[in-house]
Design a protein around this nucleic acid. Sequence first.
DNA 1: GCCTTTATAGCACGATCGAGCTAAATTCGT
DNA 2: ACGAATTTAGCTCGATCGTGCTATAAAGGC
Lengths: 209, 209
Amino acid sequence: MPKIVDPEERRRAVAEAVFRVSARDGLEHASLRNVAEEAGLAIGSVRHYFSDHNDLMIFAMRELGRRVRLRIQAHADRLLASDPEGDRRAMAEQLLAEFLPLDDARREEAVLWLTFTTAARTRPELRPLADEMDDGVRAIVRRVLREARRVGGLPGAVDIPLQTLRLTALLDGLTLHAVLYPERVTPQSMRKVLRQHLAELARPTSPTP
Amino acid sequence: MPKIVDPEERRRAVAEAVFRVSARDGLEHASLRNVAEEAGLAIGSVRHYFSDHNDLMIFAMRELGRRVRLRIQAHADRLLASDPEGDRRAMAEQLLAEFLPLDDARREEAVLWLTFTTAARTRPELRPLADEMDDGVRAIVRRVLREARRVGGLPGAVDIPLQTLRLTALLDGLTLHAVLYPERVTPQSMRKVLRQHLAELARPTSPTP
DNA sequence: GCCTTTATAGCACGATCGAGCTAAATTCGT
DNA sequence: ACGAATTTAGCTCGATCGTGCTATAAAGGC
């Protein structure tokens, strides 16, 4: 029998081709033929690994979510390893900054995130994956805020659900703008906004009027 | 000669069909044939009024921008007419709330906004229109903030460009979430977030650390 | 060499699409 | 009725797409 190809690795490589085509031309151009060409394979080979086009799209989006999750996790681990008792606000900021497209790799990921999550609006098969990604972000933001409150970095009266909603909207809004209008939203400006936002959150306050 | 059709009205009606198809199925389904069917016309009729598919897309997006602009302007006029010297903060809040998808009509507009602006990423011909829409929002937010500072509603030291960036990101982020995850982001929660945001902006502060 | 398993390859078909183009219908003025 | 202008209509073609399906190549074990 022929040389064994690791199916999972092959699938990953094809998903990478989906990402490249989508980022460059839009998801609607990620046809089997275009993706096969981008991956340097014949369409028959691509179809050996994916039962149909939907299968490919689902796999690609799942792979994207996986990559984001791993990156955030690795970053959080690094932060904790470097100084478990360090400046909590700075750490929170750095962890949250990981959601922003501050360099080329993250920017491409953000492009793909936007592409797939907006496509999920009209593609039921991608819906659960979009929800999952959103859940992931909200959970982390909520945890960051809760932990900050617990250690006294935020006022006790802070409304965690509301501030989670607000902060995730801000992060995703900045990301959306960085993807669509990169000349208007630079890495410095995003960092500055995030820092300011966290600084304001930390101030003593009264409940919403 | 036959009964004259107002070309502009016909174009508007066809754009409405584009909106319906796009909102329901996604922009990639707004083919000439699908749009013609949605508009109750033969494809030949549609093509009499638009030189090609791109022309139709450009017109539709321009029409969308026009509608948003008119709606915001009318709302601002109404606010000023009702009480030119009224509670400035409440008025600012109400004006900015007009950018959020708080009812069905605005929600559909938000869906279309997201659909067209993300499509503009890979369609150069739509690019200027997306920029224009973004410019419009930023200009209004900036004006609101400036005016609030001028009348003492915001601290003199507030960084207007930074807060403009932050507030537009928040508004667009909430809108994005309301479109993609409507169960998670309700009209009440959006209003609450906006109110909180403006309340925090208004508090005395020191410049960013 | 044969068999089996795995991987590569792509033809063919029906569907949809945009656009070139032609033709017919409609309606008013003369 | 005719002519002109406007509107409606849709055939045709080449292109692209997903998918059913078949065929070939590749490689190891016996």
